[in-house]
């Protein structure tokens, strides 16, 4: 799954974003994939790498957190979810390699103790808390852009605009990223999903504008 994924923290929470392309070789197997998967009500994970590995890893983490939440009698913290995902990725990295794919993950969300937080879990199974993180094959193209544009204490709207801009630039340059942009905003008020169709993704410099959508009777 060649991908562009990212998450960025802002004043009251986090914004997560991803493209929607899943490819097998040169064939696009799914052009409307949802790579932002819920782990709990307020913690989500961005998946890159092998679709099979990351889907099933997320399933296990969901299951652990469901039980943990019941024991706790409260919503799990973001760092707990991130640590669980990291442990699964690290302890199974031999298997993840065997199946031809590696898992690059970003866990982000909101909890009442720490507010919004972003955790990056890159290829080997490292865990780092970061103000923002980008991942997947498309991220190579937008390091400079993100370093330039990210600021602490953005508003929700500013942060979402930043995420959409970054992902759309990565999609423009990376052949294995594309399709639509999905975003999830997580704050104390809950989650807000949004979806930008392929023909409404902002155009990068040098690109042709998208064709006008045909409306069929």
């Amino acid at each position: 799954m060649g991908t562009t994924i990212m998450a960025a923290s802002y004043d009251g929470g986090v914004v997560m974003g991803a493209d929607s392309r899943t490819s097998t070789g040169s064939y696009v197997a799914n052009r409307v994939t949802d790579k932002i998967t819920p782990l709990t009500d307020r913690v989500y994970i961005c998946r890159s790498g092998s679709a099979a590995d990351t889907q099933n890893l997320s399933r296990y983490v969901q299951w652990f957190l469901e039980q943990h939440g019941m024991e706790l009698g409260d919503d799990p913290e973001v760092k707990t979810a991130a640590k669980l995902a990291q442990t699964m990725a690290y302890q199974n990295k031999n298997l993840l390699q065997a199946s031809g794919g590696l898992a690059g993950l970003i866990v982000a969300g909101w909890d009442k103790h720490h507010g919004g937080s972003v955790f990056a879990i890159p290829l080997g199974g490292t865990l780092v808390k970061v103000p923002f993180s980008i991942g997947g094959s498309g991220s190579a193209y937008i390091n400079g852009l993100c370093d330039r544009l990210w600021r602490p204490n953005m508003s929700e709207e500013e942060c979402k605009a930043f995420v959409v801009k970054a992902v759309s630039h990565a999609m423009a340059r990376d052949g294995s990223s594309g399709g639509c942009i999905r975003t999830v905003v997580i704050s104390k008020d809950g989650i807000k999903r949004s979806f930008i169709p392929g023909d409404e993704v902002p155009v990068a410099a040098g690109e042709l504008p998208p064709p006008v959508r045909q409306v069929r009777a």
Binding site: A29, N30, T33, A51, A52, Q55, N56
Partner: peptide, 12 residues
């Protein structure tokens, strides 16, 4: 759904 041999799924 599509289900791939490695165990990934898509809802379409």
């Amino acid at each position: 759904f599509t289900v791939y041999p490695h165990g990934s799924t898509d809802s379409l």
